[in-house]
Design a protein around this nucleic acid. Sequence first.
DNA 1: CACCAGGTTGACC
DNA 2: GGTCAACATGGT
Length: 225
Amino acid sequence: MTRVKSADLENEKAVRELLALGDRFYGDLGWWPAESPFEVVVGAVLTQNTAWRNVEKALDNLKKENALHPDILLGMHYGRLQRLIRPSGFYRAKRKTLLSLSRFFAERPFSEIENIATEDLRADLLRLKGVGQETADSILLYALGRKVFVVDSYTNRIFQRHGMIGEGASYSHVKALVERALRADHKTYNRFHAHIVETAKNHCGKADMDCRECPYRDHKRKRRA
DNA sequence: CACCAGGTTGACC
DNA sequence: GGTCAACATGGT
């Protein structure tokens, strides 16, 4: 038996409050700029520890070559692929990951993927080298519309500053917190994560903070020392 | 110039 | 279970 701690309930309440504040401030940010599910997949890989600005350069390069398709990437010479994605950094590792994912999606039509349970699909994605928890969940949520919350460094930073998690909180801990708190559909997880990313970029930098116009500024909580 | 950016891995304790 | 260096580019 797992005993429910009152601190957990408070943190779940805090999650709901942040979502409400974000809804009031932003409304529904239809999110993840991409024209196709596979573009989301590629973006999810390219954005690993990389500024989105640099990911856009790489995506633009791929778009100009009409290369945002599994079969095109699979047929491309590795040097050429690396050159196109170079602006997003870690280009040798990302090239391999993109090819693994291209193979994965080339082998399975979306009609087949629809019939795979989310947990099984997640496990399949995590077997690919270069696909970790956040990348897998980003693909599940933003490319495939699965009911999954994506945890990233922005989520951790904001939750830490609101005293909802400690510094060393694990990915699974934070994800479980949000999913327990909201028990929502994929659109809600999408919207909430979009709020978090916008807020982190515009008001909650790592070294510098500007809380004056933060959508979450009215949510004051005790901060740990 | 030092630090940061929508992480992941493999080696190690 | 958790820690940590390495991976690479471009912006401030």
